[in-house]
């Protein structure tokens, strides 16, 4: 996973609310057995309409996506995060996300920035006018060339993982001894739990 600290560039002024995972990546695209290439199917239904923001040459290759409330609701499919990443997006800015989506985003090196709606409205304006936006994870701020400065919160552990490009599995495997202790305590108290799990 690539480390991430500062993202600068054009932002896609999408802004839609309740964008579900079927919109981000329709089910037909879930049939892959690898993580690459899903950008082709990203926002397919929206991109079928002429003049959509995703295919607007002005926003081609933008590393930032601005969205509305409850972004990524619906299914747990991580393909939504892979698809967005495959489009080259490294930060999403929205007032809220589904829990599963924001977790999946972070695990794939995408920063889900939470900002209130009025900040989103302002950033949409800046993005539409063709100006760049800067998302700085280190200082936890989103800035524009016009003195706008919006601070955002992020869970410190998520921040640490994103800044250092850390793989969570490797981090947890360092705690094998603790997991083993927990397992033996449970095996002693509730041995029935792990018997008979085979048919």
């Amino acid at each position: 996973m690539d480390a991430l600290s500062r993202i600068e560039g054009r932002a896609i002024p999408f802004g839609a609310k309740n964008v579900d995972t079927d919109i981000i990546i329709p089910a037909v695209w879930l049939k892959t057995i690898t993580r690459d290439g899903l950008g082709q199917g990203a926002f397919e239904t929206i991109r079928a309409v002429e003049g959509n923001v995703f295919d607007d040459p002005d926003y081609a290759g933008s590393p930032i996506l601005i969205a509305g409330d409850n972004f990524g609701c619906g299914s747990s499919r991580e393909h939504a995060a892979w698809a967005i990443l495959d489009l080259g997006i490294r930060a999403v800015i929205a007032p809220s996300y589904s829990d599963i989506f924001s977790g999946n985003a972070v695990k794939n090196g995408i920063l889900p920035v939470v900002l209130p709606q009025d900040a989103i409205d302002r950033l949409m304006e800046v993005a539409r006018d063709g100006h760049e936006i800067t998302v700085d994870l280190d200082t936890q701020t989103v800035t524009t060339p016009f003195q706008d400065r919006f601070a955002f919160d992020i869970d410190p552990f998520r921040k640490h993982c994103l800044l250092n490009g850390l793989d969570e599995v490797a981090l947890t495997l360092e705690r094998q001894a603790q997991i083993g202790t927990f397992e033996s305590q449970r095996a002693a108290a509730q041995d029935w739990l792990t018997k008979g799990t085979h048919i």
Partner: peptide
């Protein structure tokens, strides 16, 4: 999500 599937399988 799938990264978590991996996490649970491994840990």
């Amino acid at each position: 999500g799938t990264s978590e599937v991996e996490h649970v399988l491994a840990t």
